[in-house]
């Protein structure tokens, strides 16, 4: 059985790595780094000599809402972070995918979230995890502590190692603490549904090329739309193209009708209010139309090729 270490602070993590590298080169130990293990299903299976579980290195160490910044130890549960953000009406604007619905798990840890570079439907407007990690502390595979970045958004002080750590899947170093940017949550959110569009690519392109600042576009083929819990989406017996609009109420109130006008030629139009909007985009974010018997791929392609690639894959 492999050894499992449960460090409770940075020093413990350092000790584990030093132990792993202190052996003769041919006996050095390999380590698998996990948070709560909720995203172990991503990528290939790791076979390491020992496992380092980071969930004991936990706690929010700094949260200044008016500075739009939070620092947390890597093992802090995402749900704990979410709760603190909700209280201040703020969010991780990149809308990270949460493994909950799909794998019947809780939200994982914040370190795991950045190490897997999760992002969601707001990606085109607000960027990905990489655009929000401002700095981190870590233990290198040489058994040394180091840090990079800082707690401010504008920073050209040395190489931007935060970008490298985001999405490194635990292969570069063990992050012990992360500092990231948070943003105010939207006051109001609406979704425009275009039902049965012949050319969903054009719907999405026109919406994104409009000045109405859409914060998410998605296309659900009929078979997927039918699995949604949102009634307008699953009732239609057609495919559904969804466009999300967020912002201050008076702004959403003019952008929605403007988009409806713009897209009315493409199919029947419906509009979702806040709670349905939240529900639908959570489903889209978490790919909760599937369950863990499916193999799920996430492809990032040139926008105009999305539909083509998808239809080629499904034949």
């Amino acid at each position: 059985m492999v050894d499992t270490f449960n460090p409770e602070n940075e020093d413990h993590v350092l000790d584990v790595v030093r132990w792993a590298v202190s052996n003769q080169p041919d006996q050095a130990k390999s380590l698998e780094i996990v948070g709560q293990g909720t995203k172990r299903g991503l990528g290939s299976v790791v076979q390491a000599d020992a496992v380092v579980t980071m969930s004991g290195v936990s706690g929010i160490t700094l949260y200044e809402p008016e500075e739009l910044v939070m620092t947390a130890r890597a093992g802090t549960p995402v749900v704990e972070i979410q709760a603190a953000l909700d209280e201040a009406n703020q969010m991780m604007a990149f809308e990270p995918w949460l493994p909950g619905p799909l794998y019947d798990q809780n939200g994982g840890t914040i370190g795991g979230l950045f190490a897997t570079a999760m992002c969601g439907p707001r990606r085109p407007l607000s960027g990905s995890a990489r655009d929000h990690l401002l700095g981190f502390h870590a233990i290198s595979g040489r058994g040394e502590t180091f840090k990079s970045g800082g707690r401010v958004v504008k920073n050209v002080t040395g190489f931007d190692l935060s970008k490298l750590m985001t999405g490194s899947m635990g292969t570069l170093a063990i992050m012990t603490e992360v500092t990231f940017k948070v943003l105010p949550g939207p006051q109001k959110a609406r979704t425009i549904l275009v039902l049965g569009a012949d050319d969903p690519n054009r719907v999405m392109r026109d919406a994104q090329n409009s000045p109405y600042e859409v914060s998410g576009v998605a296309h659900l083929p009929q078979s997927m739309a039918a699995r949604s819990s949102v009634s307008y989406v699953n009732n239609g017996e057609t495919c559904v193209t969804a466009i999300r609009v967020e912002g201050p109420a008076p702004s959403v109130d003019v952008r929605c009708p403007a988009l409806q006008d713009l897209l009315s030629g493409y199919g029947d139009i419906r509009e979702l209010h806040t709670s349905n909007t939240v529900a639908l985009w959570q489903e889209i974010r978490d790919a909760s139309f599937f369950d863990d018997t499916h193999q799920i791929w996430r492809l990032s392609v040139t926008p105009s090729q999305g539909i083509t690639v998808a239809s080629e894959l499904t034949g």
């Binding site: 990606r123 990489r130 190489f159 970008k163 490298l164 985001t166």
Partner: peptide, 18 residues
């Protein structure tokens, strides 16, 4: 490229500001 994310390490991000 013209897409938003790529697999593997984010070298694009690391080269920016180098």
């Amino acid at each position: 490229g013209k897409h938003m994310d790529a697999g593997g390490l984010d070298l694009l991000g690391a080269v920016t500001s180098s």
